[in-house]
């Protein structure tokens, strides 16, 4: 139940982020924050790759974040 409500909240959040906040075009000279490494969608690619590999071998779902990376006999 808790899980389900978390999912609902997240979907809601995503919709909110997409619709409610109107796009505020960011000029090149206003990109100081976005340019920070920590603001990237994937600031630590190794952490992400290791996690992806772990969950690939322990769960039935895969994909979504990108393409490529290669296969594994683990699942």
């Amino acid at each position: 139940m808790l899980l389900r409500s978390i999912y609902k909240t997240s979907v809601l959040l995503a919709l909110l982020a997409l619709s409610a906040c109107s796009f505020q075009p960011v000029q090149p000279w206003e990109r100081d924050i976005l340019a920070q490494k920590k603001m990237q969608l994937e600031p630590y690619p190794l952490d992400a790759a290791l996690d992806e590999h772990t969950y690939f071998s322990k769960e039935a779902s895969r994909g979504g974040a990108g393409v490529g990376g290669g296969g594994c006999g683990c699942n």
Binding site: L18, L34, G66
Partner: peptide, 21 residues
Amino acid sequence: DLLLGVTQVMGRKDLIQLNFN
């Protein structure tokens, strides 16, 4: 695998991405 995605800068402090795979 095929992927189609949009990344949108929402403001100076917001970045959002939506992918279909």
